[in-house]
Amino acid sequence: MKTVDARGFSCPEPVLRTRNALKTLPAGEELEVLVETVTSRENVRRFALTQKCEVSFDETEDGFRLIIRKP
């Protein structure tokens, strides 16, 4: 699975990095995005939902791990 490590980047970079990665991701595949703050998690989640992706996340030791499935 492709991973975007956006930990430590501030708004809106996690979203931009996610967007760029989603562009090249084949439909039906999953993207893992690592972020540090709730702000970044919510921004990435909101963006992915606008792209009609399925989004889930869980907590990690230093933040959150989002799994985004491209439709």
């Binding site: 809106p12 931009l16 963006f47």
Partner: peptide, 19 residues
Amino acid sequence: TRFCTMGSIRDVILMGDTH
């Protein structure tokens, strides 16, 4: 809520996000 005046305009221009 992450209220941000600059971010509000940036998000519209960058992503069409009106949140």
